[in-house]
Design a binder for these strands. Structure first.
Length: 466
DNA sequence: ATGTCC
């Protein structure tokens, strides 16, 4: 017996030596070469059937090779991207399309869409919608799990609140910045913090106290809390047409959600070592796996926690105003849902995309100095019942800092009559696409019910105020 | 987006 016969049977790498060693033992036991080769080909065809005896080591290696091949095959990208709809394609940069094209080649992907505010992000682009079969992609949801919007409209004229008072209210009742929380004696509890779910996973147990500390806070980056005037075009939702005082907020799941996202992204990447590098940040977790179920539970908890943050922000301010909202609306724009798509249940990821099922209310903000909109979804199938989550960046943070000056941002704010507390140059209105164009590009997706015009805005100071 | 690392 020699290696030539073995390789002819199709054994590779380590299995050649192991097959040869086994063959020599069989030879010593008196078998003919042809009988041995016959046995070896049977072992190769069905290794699981020969797990004990002289072929045990060979079988173990063959099964390891098979597992690796299976993993590779399961992770292989399609040769071509599935088609997907783009809304406002002229507003979308090529980088976002390139990222979407990778996402549409994942073996788990079934459908997708790009919203008009789309721009490059980690993994799935911001403004990307992706429907997957029985799997969830942590970076298809994003770092700020459950990032969301909330609007409170008060049944008083917009000029009821003077700028100085608005500034004082925002200063007193909101907290901005990475790592920040309300002072201990100012903290308020919430049902979400008492859920039994926190005890189900070590990572949740570990993060519970941080979540309790940071509840009701707003964070950093593009998050904001702003007073403004809200104009309802026609009588809707129990409110007469008119212009009112309103509060609009953008916040998320803070450090808690960020750590959940980081943990499960790393886990997903480690479970897909052979995924093509271009899709590394799109590593997924099967919902049939313990890891996938754990992420699903943690993600939904972070989603509820983010909404609780908004509830507290609005409750504090409404109380200070002595008002009860006459109309309120909220939505999550970084989350995944189990939804019916074309007759089957899929996992619909919206990463910077507003759910827009028929009749569903949504909030699409512009920039710190541009209007935001209360919209009603139309359940448009090619968009996977989605809309944009804002205007979308046209300049990255660095590009904004390098190309925009404080004076031109100040001039823009002055022109729009906006007073700003905090806010960095990277959040300048000029860094965003024109919200009017973005709204116009999604007339098939949503109807506009009302327009919010910011007047007094608070954001994180970041490194540099405007 | 997050308080700074895999």
């Amino acid at each position: 017996m020699n290696g030539k016969y073995i390789t002819k049977l199709g054994f590779t790498n380590k299995s050649i030596g192991l097959a040869l060693a086994a063959a020599q033992l069989r030879e010593a036991a008196g078998l003919e070469r042809s009988a041995i080769l016959d046995e070896l080909s049977k072992v190769k065809a069905d290794p699981a059937g020969f797990q004990s005896g002289v072929y045990a080591d060979l079988v173990r290696e063959l099964l390891t090779q098979q597992a690796h091949t299976d993993l590779h095959a399961a992770d292989a990208l399609r040769s071509a991207a599935l088609p997907y709809a783009q809304f406002g394609a002229a507003l979308i940069d090529q980088g976002a399309r390139d990222q979407m094209n990778v996402a549409m080649r994942l073996p788990i992907t079934r459908a997708g869409a790009l919203m008009p505010d789309a721009h490059v992000g980690y993994g799935l682009p911001i403004g990307g919608v992706l429907a997957a079969e029985n799997a969830v992609i942590p970076y298809g949801v994003g770092v700020d799990i459950g990032c969301s919007m909330r609007l409170s409209v008060f049944a008083v004229p917009a000029d009821t609140l003077k700028t100085a008072e608005a500034l004082a209210l925002l200063q007193k009742h909101t907290r901005f910045g990475a790592g920040v929380s309300f002072e201990r004696r100012e903290r308020i509890g919430h049902d979400v913090l008492d859920e039994a779910v926190w005890d189900d996973q070590p990572i949740l147990r570990r993060l519970h106290d941080k979540a309790a500390d940071q509840i009701g806070s707003s964070g950093s980056g593009n998050h904001f809390a702003e007073f403004g005037s809200f104009t309802l075009g026609q009588s809707e939702l129990g409110l007469d047409a008119g212009t009112y005082l309103a509060l609009l907020t953008h916040s998320g799941s803070r450090g808690f959600g960020a750590q959940v996202a980081g943990h499960f992204t790393k886990l997903a990447e480690s479970l897909h070592p052979t995924l093509h590098p271009s899709a590394k940040k799109l590593a997924w977790l099967s919902l049939d796996s313990e890891e996938g179920q754990a992420y699903w539970q943690a993600m939904n908890l972070a989603g509820r926690y983010a909404l609780a943050n908004h509830e507290q922000i609005h409750a504090r301010i409404a109380k200070a105003l002595g008002q009860t909202p006459a109309l309120s609306a909220h939505n999550s724009h970084n989350l995944a849902w189990k939804e019916q798509v074309g007759g089957s249940e899929l996992i619909v990821h919206r990463k910077g995309a507003t759910p827009a099922a028929a009749g569903q209310l949504g909030l699409i903000p512009g920039s710190m100095a541009d209007p935001g909109y209360l919209v009603r979804g139309k359940g448009h199938a090619p968009s996977l019942a989605s809309a944009s989550h804002g205007a979308g960046r046209q300049l990255g943070r660095k590009a904004a800092q390098n190309t925009l000056s404080k004076s031109e941002v100040s001039a823009y704010l002055k022109d729009k009559g906006v007073t700003l507390l905090g806010g960095g140059i990277d959040e300048a209105p000029q860094a965003y696409k024109r919200i009017q164009d973005v709204i116009a590009a999604q007339s098939e997706l949503v109807d506009v019910l009302g327009e919010f015009r910011p007047k007094v805005v608070r954001m994180d100071s970041g490194s540099e105020d405007i």
